[in-house]
Design a protein around this nucleic acid. Structure first.
Lengths: 137, 137
DNA sequence: TTTACAAATCGGAATCATTCCGATAAAATA
DNA sequence: TATTTTATCGGAATGATTCCGATTTGTAAA
């Protein structure tokens, strides 16, 4: 997912263009890691002094709904990151800095046999720890 | 993990016995599914009219620390269940009733090769959906 | 079996993330 | 440009969780 494509998708689905939306997407595109609503708010405040939490959350949820961002819950707080383009995969998530590394192993195919009568709606496979950078810091 | 063993473990580690602690453990032992602090509170109120959230949370955290309960975050709320005895495994979790089913597939061994320089501290593999009972209900 | 003390509990206030709402402002379109 | 729809703001409300001072209760030692 890149910013221009996301913006186009917004327009196509009847949502309005705003500078704030573009900047939010650019923020996640640059960060390329899991960030909280507060992280985003603080970054946005640099250019939009009075931006409100309502705007932050409304757009975060919109982006998740449109599959532009993905979300996970870490230590009681939602964290968002731009959705990866490539094929299905999972993430190692650094608990210090939020950086991620793609994991290409996914056990779902073998799991489905174990869950014949269950309606699978979603799954989460995440590995937590410290990335090389945060280990030395 | 069973109730008596948990109570003994509490005692061994210098924690005091209280009826409430025993009843909390019995609740999770019976339920055998992911329950919230509020679920527990409401159940406990039947016998202890004035039990407080402080007591609920303090003990939930203690139990997690002592490895008697395990915790996961579902839809912004922490859910607790009694820790399984058997060997390492993961869970299918029913999003309606919180019932779980053990999944015996775990991809961590193959994943470790992908994460040579990363310090792995924890991992989560959960499958969400509807259990057979909740599908028909 | 009392005593003494640390741990546990209560009640309620505080905190923190998130959501909601009414009023205003800005984008899109005719 | 006028109209309509969506977005934003500011601030209040909500809901889970935590904190705190005062009180009570296990427990171990006298």
């Amino acid at each position: 997912m890149n910013v221009d494509r996301a913006l186009q998708q917004l327009k196509e689905q009847g949502h309005k263009y705003t500078d704030k939306r573009e900047d939010m997407l650019r923020y996640f595109d640059q960060e390329n890691s899991y960030r909280t609503a507060r992280d985003l708010l603080e970054n946005m405040r640099e250019n939009y002094t009075n931006i409100s939490f309502d705007t932050i959350y409304r757009n975060l949820h919109l982006f998740v709904e449109l599959n532009i961002l993905e979300v996970t819950e870490l230590e009681g707080e939602k964290h968002f990151r731009i959705k990866c383009d490539s094929h299905h995969h999972h993430h190692f998530i650094c608990l210090d800095c939020g950086q991620t590394k793609e994991i290409h192993t996914c056990p779902m195919s073998s799991v489905k046999q174990e869950l014949q009568d269950f309606a699978i709606e979603d799954h989460k496979f995440e590995i937590y720890g410290k990335c090389p950078t945060c280990q030395t810091a």
